[in-house]
């Protein structure tokens, strides 16, 4: 299973992600430039955190039109797994691959802290390694992580178990304490917290490992059944 981590001008969590994948999880992973137009050789794509294109206009608004995003859309449409972390989540909402939007934190402050989360759905391919309603600790670091969607969209998210992670103490004002969601098809995940920064004891938490381990185990199982 091979991972692609697209690098946009202004991405800054791309190397953390590749470090987690290669050095901790022993998975092949490539940094691919935002100009890449073909992702055929990869089995999963992870859009990293950062401030793509300086967050000009809105977070993710310019990155959405980078050449690689055409390939990411085709990749997602083919049912292959796509994850977006932090700025990656913002890009996925701007691209229409996930519903809703990320707006400025309610406090107007950039928040950088470890936040407790509850894993709400443990049947998705991203979360099977966790126990139902397990509380985990992941770092957050964002100024615009306040998830917004309208009531109809929230009802849809709930009806199809698309809410994977909720904040315990909602630090940014997100609708329904939402920290991470997936699309209805279950192959696109977006979350503001940083699992790649919680993969080694020395980092303070290993609670982020479960997301990668879930995805890898479920994808490998799918391959062996194919």
């Amino acid at each position: 299973m091979k991972f692609a981590v697209p690098v946009f001008p202004g991405s800054n969590c791309d190397h953390d992600m590749v470090n987690a994948l290669r050095d901790i999880l022993n998975m092949p992973a490539d940094l691919v430039p935002a100009t890449t137009t073909n992702l055929d050789q990869y089995d999963a794509v992870i859009l990293p955190g950062g401030f793509s294109y300086g967050d000009y206009l809105r977070s993710g608004a310019i990155a959405r039109f980078a050449p690689v995003m055409t390939a990411v859309k085709a990749f997602a449409a083919a049912g292959k797994p796509v994850m977006g972390i932090c700025n990656g989540f913002q890009i996925l909402t701007e691209a229409g691959l996930l519903p809703g939007a990320l707006q400025a934190n309610r406090s107007s402050k950039f928040i950088c802290q470890t936040s407790p989360l509850v894993v709400k759905n443990t049947t998705s391919q991203f979360t099977t390694a966790y126990e139902p309603n397990q509380q985990i600790q992941l770092p957050i670091a964002h100024g615009e992580g306040n998830y917004y969607c309208d009531e109809a969209t929230l009802a849809e998210l709930r009806a199809h178990q698309q809410i994977l992670f909720e904040y315990v103490d909602n630090p940014n004002g997100s609708v329904a304490n939402i920290a991470g969601i997936m699309n209805r098809q279950g192959n696109v995940l977006g979350m503001m917290p940083h699992p790649e920064r919680a993969v080694e004891t020395i980092l303070g938490s290993t609670d982020g490992l479960g997301i990668f381990q879930s995805l890898i185990a479920n994808q490998q199982q799918e391959v062996s059944h194919a």
Binding site: L57, R58, A61, F65, T93, E94, G100, A101, Q103, Y148, C149, D150
Partner: peptide, 8 residues
């Protein structure tokens, strides 16, 4: 498409 995010 670009200048506004019509969600919000």
């Amino acid at each position: 498409r670009l200048l506004a995010n019509v969600n919000m």
